[in-house]
């Protein structure tokens, strides 16, 4: 009689792995998706989902209200605000999201010394930096582009002019893409400088808000003293006014600068150079940071 195998307990011992090893690019993609999901608290504890999800909702609700207003108010032909204005008016929410999630993404690895474990695997320093940078920028892009998508769909439901709306939507997307890259770079650098999460949060808020406050104040003074030429150049010194200047010059946005003038194409080109320089600079600084933070 054959033994009843269903009741046997097998000690299968150690099994070696002969399957696929997908190497460096797969590891980089895995790190990217893990970091992107982590920015919204996915794959982390329930507690860490609360803040990013609330901020995401706070970003989307005004867009829904705008759409609702546009559809219900009779005779309206366009949305109450431009696509490019949306990110500027919600910059505090974007700043809070960055300040809470950038340290989560990089400070934890530094603080708990997990970084050497990454570098003892097939990925290299450049893979780690690129994956973290791309994940943070993507998280910000999702945060800033989703309300624009809601507005665009709403405008189509309201039967506004398709061409106009799509053009505005496209301009808005380019603007928030640039904003996402710039903010991600600045946020990650600030967060990577300190293993302490609290310092990272404070540093990011400081970098976003203090220059903005200073620039706005100086611009206000320049405007009230009639020195309007200085207003354009002042905008170079804070991240959000940099984006404001670029989209005013190239993307048909209405500037939030005092007087509403904003830079011309010539000055705007300087704005663009500064923004791209900051993005490249923060990437280079991150690479330098992890040269030291390795094993």
């Amino acid at each position: 009689m054959a033994p009843d195998t269903s009741t046997q307990i097998h000690n299968i011992g150690y099994r070696s792995y002969d399957g696929a090893r997908l190497g460096r690019s797969y590891a980089r993609k895995s790190l990217f998706s893990q970091s992107l999901r982590g920015a919204y608290g996915l794959g982390r504890s329930a507690k860490s989902k609360v803040l990013p999800m609330i901020l995401f909702a706070v970003m989307c609700v005004p867009a829904l209200i705008l759409v609702a207003v546009a559809i219900t108010v009779p005779g309206s032909t366009e949305l109450p605000i431009k696509y490019t204005t949306y990110a500027l008016t919600t910059q505090v929410v974007i700043g809070l999201f960055l300040a809470s999630q950038a340290p989560q993404s990089v400070s934890r690895d530094l603080r708990f010394k997990t970084v050497p474990l990454y570098f003892s695997r097939p990925i290299e320093r450049v893979d780690y930096v690129v994956a973290k940078f791309a994940a943070m920028a993507s998280a910000l892009f999702i945060l800033t582009a989703t309300p624009l998508l809601i507005m665009w769909i709403g405008s189509l439901l309201a039967k506004f002019d398709f061409g106009d709306q799509t053009k505005g939507f496209g301009q808005g997307l380019v603007s928030v893409l640039l904003l996402s890259l710039l903010f991600a770079g600045l946020g990650l650098i600030m967060a990577a400088l300190t293993p302490r999460r609290g310092f990272g949060v404070a540093a990011i808020i400081a970098v976003l808000l203090i220059p903005y406050g200073a620039v706005t104040a100086v611009q206000g003074i320049a405007y009230s003293t009639g020195n309007t030429g200085a207003i354009d150049w002042m905008g170079l010194f804070s991240p959000i006014t940099l984006i404001d200047g670029i989209q005013t010059a190239f993307l048909g946005a209405t500037s939030a600068f005092p007087g509403g003038e904003g830079p011309t194409a010539g000055t705007g080109f300087v704005y663009l150079l500064v923004a791209l320089g900051l993005i490249a600079g923060s990437y280079a600084a991150l690479m330098a940071r992890y040269r030291k933070a390795g094993l």
Binding site: G19, A20, R21, L22, G23, S30, R121
Partner: peptide, 13 residues
């Protein structure tokens, strides 16, 4: 699991 994926193992493996 995360570290295994960082070593190049597919998700199921």
């Amino acid at each position: 699991v995360h570290m295994a994926r960082m070593s190049g193992l597919p998700p199921t493996a």
